[in-house]
Nucleic acid binder design. Structure first.
Length: 640
RNA sequence: GCCCGUGUAGCUCAGUCGGCAGAGCACUUCCUUGGUAAGGAAGAGGCCGUCGGUUCGAUUCCGACCGCGGGCUCCA
């Protein structure tokens, strides 16, 4: 006998008759059962004592169950339409679900419409979903008879003797559940994409066809999600980049993964770099500049030729010496450190550089600005004494939050990557160093009030690290900042400082990049702002628009005045176009301020101000506009 | 690398069941002097991704290659 709380809040006691019967009696719709916070199948036996909560379709806890069932409806429809299809796996995922199939013949996007129609039928049929437990031998015989090789492989990895299947109508699938009680509950479902996927993600194994879909408890939620997808599509930086004349990539001529920054993109980059440099000087960093290539022996010493060779380009010969394009900046910074004997009084030393590096990426993974082959890291190396590391990490987090905040990123997720405790032999550095470094990272995070997820086994071999993910305006997560200890290179380069005991000591070194790379960060910024940059970043902050030819000299005078005040302004006087045309163009280019000059304004030293938002401020003295733009720049906000 | 899709003017895309290649935007010229999201007309612009095959003839059909887009475990 268990106490059951229904979605309505009603409490009932359920006996051996079972939960499903009791629910049917009360006409209650149940998606799943919550027991100690775990989602369970409504068909499972209830605990002898205690309390369970039945959750309805609308409960967030039921979303994965709904989607998992939706993936079964998909698989059901596919088996009806494509005899001979083989089933692989079909889990719920963050934004919906997918199911992997092996089709006898290739399908394409048009097939999704047919499949969706068949899914609608299955939902309409409102088939009860039953759970079936089979003994292992029977399960194996059944799957073998159906020729479900992938399922058989999965079965062999299940340790249990009783194997769980789910049946809806004529469709039966190996599955651990849980599932909804019937197919009729999957009302709001949509197939969104089609892609290839390796069986178990292994490039050596079969290529399957993956169908992606999403499902929600209500039509509104589904539509909202589809709108969100559409919004993300419109903000795609690969679309906005050329549209706004920010950058271009030329695979055939320049090379894949190599970015050309156009004047407007470069203007934004200039603002980012200037701000970044100012903040770094204020935070006690010293800027350095290092070359793009270095001799092979440098990369031998650093170890990159051992553990990072596949990411590096082939060497070039210069006067009989091998040189490599740099994939990282650290060896150069270390070389600067080593130009003289350092005292403990010199530490911490913080070398920062916007250093351009080149890394080999397979062509299939290149993606706009987000994954490229040549990029500029906002890199720095902090070299310090053991007693300084905690304060250094904390200062680093401070700087990170200050800089990211300026770009409108205020939501963070933090991952702390540490050693795999089972395999400490895979890592360089002593236990004491790892513990001290991890301790400093944890305490710095705590002092900063940042919650974090500890991830054992995620650290690289040379030290623990913090990775910071930000959420953009569409709530998408991007990994930007990384702060990582390096126990490897100080050793390999024999870095040292002289302590107060007169002896040489090994310093700690921390690598950190706050924005990651300027290319990738720029791509993220474009999508975050949808191309409508805040005034301080906007490549063109104001356009001056003459109404007729007569106002051209006045408009140019106004633009000059703005430029003298440090505002990026253009007078659009090159062509005789109607004001309507000029406004539309400025609007499409997402220029924050449109300053209209007609006869009335020219006579009075005024401009009629239209904002990017569509708001009309009416005629304003030029001087007050200058002040308003300067104010918006100083605030670094989106407000105009 | 692999699966599906895709490649035609600077851009976005039609089209040819094998017979001289099309539109809109952008560009050039002319007309228009226009007050808050496209004023009008004319012109110029093409190795129809590359290479090969079939054919009297290929941008179209076939093959290979190249480029681009989406995706390639969030495990029954």
């Amino acid at each position: 006998m268990a106490d059951v709380i229904l979605p309505s809040g009603e409490r009932i006691v359920v006996g051996d008759a079972g939960l499903l019967a009791a629910l049917r009696e009360r006409r209650a719709t149940a998606a799943a059962v919550l027991l100690d916070g775990q989602v369970h199948d409504v068909r499972d036996p209830l605990p002898a004592v205690g309390e369970v909560r039945v959750v309805g379709l609308n409960d967030p806890a039921a979303l994965d169950v709904l989607r998992h069932t939706a993936s079964h409806v998909l698989a059901h429809a596919v088996t009806r339409l494509y005899p001979g299809v083989k089933l692989a796996i079909g889990p719920a995922i963050a934004e919906g679900f997918y199911y992997d199939f092996r089709f006898p013949d290739p399908i394409n996007r048009d097939d999704l419409v047919r499949i969706e129609a068949e899914m609608a039928k299955i939902v309409e049929e409102d088939l009860p979903i039953e759970r079936v437990w089979l003994p292992r031998a029977e399960a194996e015989a059944l799957l073998a008879e159906k020729g479900e090789a992938y399922k058989l492989e999965l079965l062999r990895e299940i340790p249990d003797e009783k194997i769980s299947f789910y049946r809806q109508g004529e469709f039966l699938d190996l599955c651990r559940g849980p599932h909804l009680p019937s197919t009729g509950l999957v009302q709001h479902v949509k197939l969104v994409d089609l892609a290839g996927a390796y069986w178990r993600g292994d490039a050596e194994r079969d290529m399957l066809t993956r169908i992606y879909g999403t499902a929600f408890p209500t039509r509104e939620a589904l539509e909202e999600h589809l709108k969100w997808r559409e919004e993300a599509r419109k903000r795609d930086h690969r679309f906005l980049g050329p549209e706004l004349d920010l950058f271009s990539i030329h695979n055939e001529t320049v090379g894949a993964g190599l970015v050309l920054w156009h004047p407007k993109g470069a203007a934004i980059r200039h603002q980012i770099e200037t701000f970044w440099k100012d903040e770094h000087y204020k935070a006690g960093y010293q800027l350095v500049v290092t070359p793009h290539i270095g001799r092979a022996r440098l990369w031998e010493t650093s170890g990159h030729l051992d553990f990072y060779r596949e990411g590096m380009y082939s060497p070039m010969m210069v006067e009989g010496q091998e040189f490599y394009l740099k994939p990282m900046n650290c060896p150069f910074h270390i070389a600067i450190y080593k130009t003289r004997t350092r005292s403990y009084r010199d530490l911490p030393i913080r070398y920062a550089e916007l250093g351009t590096v080149y890394r080999f990426e397979r062509s299939g993974v290149l993606h706009g600005l987000l994954r490229v082959r040549g990029f500029t890291q906002d890199d720095a190396h902090i070299i310090c004494r053991p007693d300084q590391i905690e304060d250094e990490v904390l200062a680093c987090l401070d700087l990170t939050l200050r800089i990211l905040g300026a770009f409108g990123f205020h939501d963070y997720k933090v991952a702390l990557s540490v050693r795999d405790p089972e395999h400490t032999e895979h890592y360089i550095g002593s236990d004491a160093m790892w513990e001290q470094a991890e301790g400093s990272l944890v305490r710095a995070l705590e002092r900063k009030g940042l919650s974090y997820t500890r991830m054992p086994g995620e650290a690289v071999f040379y030290g623990p690290k913090i990775d910071l993910h930000v959420l953009d305006s569409l709530k998408r997560s991007w990994q930007l900042t990384t702060i990582q200890f390096d126990f490897n290179e100080p050793e390999r380069f024999d870095m040292a400082y002289i302590g107060d005991d007169g002896q040489a000591h090994r310093p700690y070194m921390v690598h950190r990049a706050l924005l990651g790379s300027l290319e990738r960060f720029f791509g993220i910024l474009i999508e975050h702002y949808g191309g409508a940059f805040p005034v301080w970043l906007a490549p063109v902050q104001a356009v001056v628009l003459p109404v007729t030819e007569a106002e051209i000299p006045y408009a140019e005078g106004v633009a000059d005045e703005l430029r003298r005040a440090g505002i990026r302004a253009e007078a659009w006087t090159r062509e005789r176009k109607t004001l309507r045309w000029l406004i539309r163009e400025a609007q499409l280019q997402k220029v924050p301020y449109m300053l209209v000059c007609g006869a009335r304004e020219a006579a009075g030293g005024l401009v009629a101000v239209r904002l990017r938002t569509g708001e009309d401020l009416g005629p304003q003295p030029v001087g007050s506009m200058v002040a308003q733009v300067q104010e918006a720049v100083a605030s670094r906000g989106l407000a105009l």
